[in-house]
């Protein structure tokens, strides 16, 4: 069922569904009581996203109990990429509601742009996915107000997709096997790998590097999305990086592998991966941070407001009392 599209179409991306787990809220409570106290200073927080393991589950940005640890990749599941977050916790509900949202999200967008400009995001491709988390933790009631934003820099134009194909129509079973092995060994070498280069016949997988990047190689990325026609959110900032690197003189066409992996009966299966031919718009010329999509997450009713999580029944009050200041 190869899908050929004669005409270029707007490439559309599936956003993240935030998935802070109960252990994260517990960890935040402890951080607030033991370390942050009344400080409202922004602080780093470690998230991660699973690589499209199940087609029937939305792309998730997860936070667990290790979100505040020293090691960004601690307890990272094997098939997941780290994502760097900034947590801005407000001490009062009023402060939470009156934040300068535009300024807050611009911090993250600026960081992504700086990391692309400096080449840091090329060396550590997990920096292409950075997020903002605003919180107000009502520790008396165990109510957590929160709002995620997943900023995406804009290219000079919206990237267009020429074709979308299942990976099996592009690579042979042997090549797919080699691809899975290559991606695995890359992950073993560096847990902060989120994008990579697939060379030639698909047999070799290498880290992204400016001297290896060209329009003749396929650029792969670990895709949290499982949809047959759309890539996940991390590709957005990756395309900006590619545009800045490959399209300085004008628009170029690149081949993108949306790499997804799940385990079936004990063996890796990447057959739900897809391959896109994407038209990269011309690079930005100015060094300033370009316009960006703010990417505020909608609430379950698709409204642009924060969410709330009520854990009054599941938090362990005696434990929190032990650690209360």
């Amino acid at each position: 069922q190869t899908r050929h599209r004669a005409m270029a179409q707007l490439l559309r991306f599936a956003s993240f569904a935030s998935s802070p787990d109960i252990a994260f809220w517990h960890a935040l409570s402890r951080q607030k009581l033991d370390h942050m106290k009344l400080s409202e200073a922004a602080r780093p927080v470690h998230g991660f996203y699973p690589i499209g393991d199940r087609p029937d589950v939305p792309a998730r940005l997860c936070l667990g109990d290790t979100a505040f640890g020293d090691d960004p990749v601690a307890e990272l599941p094997a098939l997941a990429c780290p994502a760097k977050g900034i947590l801005m916790n407000s001490n009062t509900l009023d402060a939470f509601k009156t934040r300068d949202l535009q300024a807050d999200v611009a911090v993250v967008a600026q960081n992504i742009w700086s990391d692309i400009q400096s080449g840091e995001a090329l060396r550590n491709t997990s920096l292409l996915t950075q997020f903002l988390l605003l919180t107000f933790a009502d520790l008396k009631k165990y109510h957590f107000h929160y709002w995620f934003a997943f900023p995406a820099l804009k290219c000079t134009a919206d990237p267009q997709v020429m074709s979308t194909k299942p990976v099996s129509s592009v690579y042979s079973p042997e090549q797919l096997d080699a691809l899975a092995k290559g991606a695995d060994s890359l992950r073993q070498k560096s847990r902060t790998t989120a994008a990579f280069i697939v060379t030639g016949d698909g047999s070799s997988v290498e880290p992204l590097a400016s001297d290896k990047l060209s329009c003749d190689v396929t650029v792969g990325f670990f895709d949290p999305c499982g949809l047959a026609d759309n890539p996940g959110w991390p590709l957005r900032n990756l395309l900006v990086l590619l545009s800045q690197t490959l399209a300085k003189d004008g628009a170029k066409t690149v081949r993108i592998l949306c790499y997804r992996e799940r385990v079936q009966d004990g063996t890796p299966d990447i057959s739900h991966s897809i391959v896109l031919e994407v038209v990269l718009p011309k690079a930005h010329e100015k060094p300033e941070c370009p316009d960006f999509v703010k990417g505020w997450e909608k609430n379950p009713k698709q409204k642009l407001t924060p969410r709330i999580c009520n854990l009054s029944a599941t938090m362990n009050p005696t434990h929190l009392a032990d650690t209360a200041v």
Binding site: H145, K294, T305
Partner: peptide
Amino acid sequence: DDVESLDDYDYDGSAVVEDDDAAALPA
């Protein structure tokens, strides 16, 4: 009933949080 609702809050106009972004796949 005392779980606060943040639905009514006006974030200084929706332009602050809204993206004019056709490239985002609708849920």
